[in-house]
Nucleic acid binder design. Structure first.
Lengths: 286, 286
DNA sequence: GGTCCAGCATCAGAACAGCTTACGCTCAAC
DNA sequence: GTTGAGCGTAAGCTGTTCTGATGCTGGACC
């Protein structure tokens, strides 16, 4: 019988590409991962890994096995969620990941609406890192966002549900095209917001000239108000209105979603959190 | 993470009812099974077993978990079948279970039609025992039959596909009702054929008086020809026609099916066998 | 071309899990 | 009351699965 623990390592390898990265993500030594994958290869009876230069590559057989591993692990998630739903109600610790703006604006009222026994533990995390953290079991559930220009999570092991949508604004009273020569305030490279701004500008026909790299939208708005550059900010981050910053809505929208491991939605605490988030009226009368 | 090996034990316990029986079926000592189930209970965090008199009973939580265990084990079967399909074609050993008549009539021509690399290993087995043997991994595939009066396999871990249907005959030129006072030749208790005859007679309003208990239909027909009693025989068992036995078709039919572990149909050898069996014309011009 | 470092495999040893054997307990049948 | 089936626990052994050490290979950089 194939061992799900080994299958999990293979799946992670498909995502991360190196044994060392898998080991770090799942808190093993590379040696252990290497041995386990060798054992899996032996049991499978097919070559799964081949050395390519300094790293390993998955054979076609391994990719096929990853697909099946996904299905197996998903069923195991389902089983565990069902057990939790049976044992306990929505109580105990719930590890929540959230992008910074959500942590500041959405979560405080949301957490207040959770069942009393639930102990939320919030970690700020960029949406780009969420699927890895969910797979590794570091988080139970996460709030993420996606922009029109940035592809959503494609990881099959993660399940997402849309919560709401909001507009994106330019921090001055011009069109996006007219801001082509202004200095820009961008988020740090590697974050979703950084990618979004770059793509939006590219779509408008120019490459933004970066002056500042700031992740916190409050700081971004303060810089914009001080004439330090222009930026794109989502509606959620622009409330309450920042004095001294005029906003122009753009035909770009940002969607906020909830994410968790596929099959794990039945977990009572996850389900309770999902319900509270879905029930929130974020923009009651904008 | 829940351990599929332990889940398998729990599933088997749901079928067999005692730890001792599970141990025997899966070739462990009862002690090992007991320990593993205790560990599963600990990991699940819910009571799964409760002593009832001398045996154990599954709690509602355990039954829920069995459902999920089934889904997990099914996915694992799928994964292994896919691996085999990738590694090798239809070759290597294939453990086939078959009811005796099938072994004598159907299998010889069928085996000849299998791909050359395939090494069939046939075991005669009563359909009533097939699902247990499949679950235990003692067989890869089996030929079974079901009668109108006898419920088919209900085991969710086994998948069946109908191959063909045939009529059942009474071994003399009378109606079933007229045979109520004759001595009967029955199969051994516990077999499907035994149950079928009893039920058919009960449906006709009487309880058959057993004289002989014979499983082999050739012997049954020889006894019938010798005036030792009447019996019900399926069409397949009555070919070629037995001299001295007149047959009366009854409005009872017997279906022959192929069975294998759910999800395992993708295994190349199983699939090849299935194809050959489905392609056989058993009753070309009856 | 030489050096450095990242990445992987292999080995030996330690920790752990899982199995068997032995034994005791309980409950039902007779 | 006796017997035997069924389950659980303790002790001991074995195989698995980690870690840590070591060596090899290939790409990057000087």
């Amino acid at each position: 019988m194939l061992d799900p623990r080994k299958l999990r390592l293979l799946r992670e390898l498909a995502h991360r590409g190196t044994i060392a990265a898998v080991a770090e993500a799942l808190t093993f030594t590379p040696s252990a991962v290497s041995q386990q994958l060798s054992a899996l290869e032996r049991e499978a009876g097919v070559p799964l890994l081949e050395r390519t230069g300094r790293t390993v590559a998955l054979t076609p057989a391994a990719h096929l096995l990853v697909e099946h591993a996904q299905a197996v692990l998903e069923q195991l998630e389902r089983a565990e969620a069902a057990l939790r739903a049976l044992t306990e109600g929505p109580r105990g610790p719930l590890r929540i990941g959230a992008f910074p703006t959500a942590a500041r604006t959405l979560l405080p009222p949301a957490l207040a609406g959770l069942p009393p026994g639930l102990e939320p533990m919030v970690t700020e995390i960029d949406p780009a890192d969420v699927s890895a953290a969910l797979r590794a079991g570091e988080l139970d559930v996460a709030l993420i966002h996606e922009y029109d220009f940035v592809p959503p999570i494609t990881d099959r092991s993660v399940e997402t549900h849309a919560l709401f949508s909001e507009a994106v604004f330019l921090t001055q009273r011009t069109s996006l095209e007219e801001a082509r020569d202004d200095p820009w305030i961008l988020a740090k490279p590697g974050t979703l917001c950084h990618t979004m701004t770059i793509r939006a500008c590219q779509a408008a026909g120019f490459e933004p000239r970066a002056r500042h790299h700031l992740d916190d939208f409050d700081t971004v708005l303060a810089f914009a108000a001080a004439g330090q550059g222009v930026a794109l900010v989502p509606e959620l981050a622009a409330r309450p209105p920042h004095p001294g910053v005029r906003l122009t809505p753009l035909p770009i929208s940002r969607r906020t979603l909830i994410a968790f491991r596929r099959g794990y939605g039945g977990h009572p605490a996850v389900s309770a959190f999902h319900q509270v988030m879905a029930g929130m009226t974020v923009f009651q009368s904008s």
